[in-house]
Nucleic acid binder design. Structure first.
Lengths: 180, 180
DNA sequence: GTCTATACTAAGATAGAC
DNA sequence: GTCTATCTTAGTATAGAC
């Protein structure tokens, strides 16, 4: 296996998938390189053959996590899903629990503010992609921005609250605002 | 000074103020007990005469930070400020920079999700207070929830972005939605 | 109540064998 | 390319002097 030309690329990809999952669920500081590598079936030392630092991994993992989350979300919906179907799937208890794929925009929001420029750039890029998915034509940009905040912000806040009743109120309010 | 009956209470308060400021700006993991105590003009060892653990301090600091942020925000506005004046002051570059008092709801959103129940309870309590400030009568609750998300979520996302132009677009969109 | 000194633990990063 | 072993740093928490 060691002499396969694609082996390194595959391993790198596996590390990235593990990192995307763990970082999104638990944040930068609560996940060690050890955790990521163990989750990928490897050991600490092998990490630096693929990435220069934990920060570099984090930046790439954000993008990977976003792609995975998008696929997962859309896969659970009909082919031509309406706006409100997408919004409801995003602002759902399933998503909030975070046991399948999770959106890094909502799960890592305040985890980004003070990190490397590279990390903030990755987040910004993903956010721009999110906006484009919502509303490709730029005339409705203002509405798209509000919708994005209701979705991402609503989920981020919901995950901090400890009261399920309040969370479901919150989701309903955001769904109503984001679907119109 | 050591025999003043109010001395301990005053020191505790000073630690709490330092913690509120540092935690809100930098999050739980990026602030050490050492940092908090040094900022308060004391040393590490003295901490445990006032709090049992870092988590306990964090929970209390969130409430303290919220009160301070509210005072600071309102102090900069006229006595009978309109809704949109409050919203604009909240969603401002001044607030985003975070060099004066900052709202823990927006600055610590995703920092809360996986911490002690006590911490999550503190955050939830502050969020409820925020809602009540926005709209004391519960009939307009749904609108108040959306407004809260546009303010808190808008600020949280803005702090993660690295593009000032995008941030100002974002602020405008949220201000328009939250003021009506 | 506050200080200095000190476990104890965890984590990022590197070195060298295979 | 992956492993084990190690260096280094940092942070929570505690012990004991004053």
């Amino acid at each position: 296996m060691a002499w396969s030309p694609t082996h390194k690329e595959q391993t790198r990809e596996k590390i990235l998938q593990s990192a995307a999952r763990l970082f999104t669920q638990q944040g930068f500081d609560n996940v060690g390189i050890n955790d990521v590598m163990a989750h990928a079936g490897l050991t600490r030392g092998a990490f630096y053959a693929h990435f220069h630092s934990k920060s570099e991994l984090y930046a790439e993992a954000i993008v990977t996590a976003a792609l995975t989350a998008q696929s997962t979300l859309l896969a659970a919906l009909p082919e031509r899903a309406t706006r409100s179907q997408v919004v409801n799937a995003y602002l759902s208890d399933t998503h909030r629990r975070g046991d399948s794929a999770s959106c890094p925009l909502a799960f890592l929001t305040t985890d980004i503010s003070q990190r490397d420029p590279v990390i903030r750039a990755a987040y910004t890029k993903v956010f721009r992609g999110f906006l484009n998915q919502l509303e490709p034509n730029s005339e409705a940009r203002e509405k798209a921005l509000r919708t994005a905040v209701l979705m991402i912000g609503g989920m981020a806040i919901a995950r901090a609250l400890d009261d399920d009743g309040l969370v479901s109120e919150l989701f309903s309010a955001c769904q109503a605002g984001a679907s119109r």
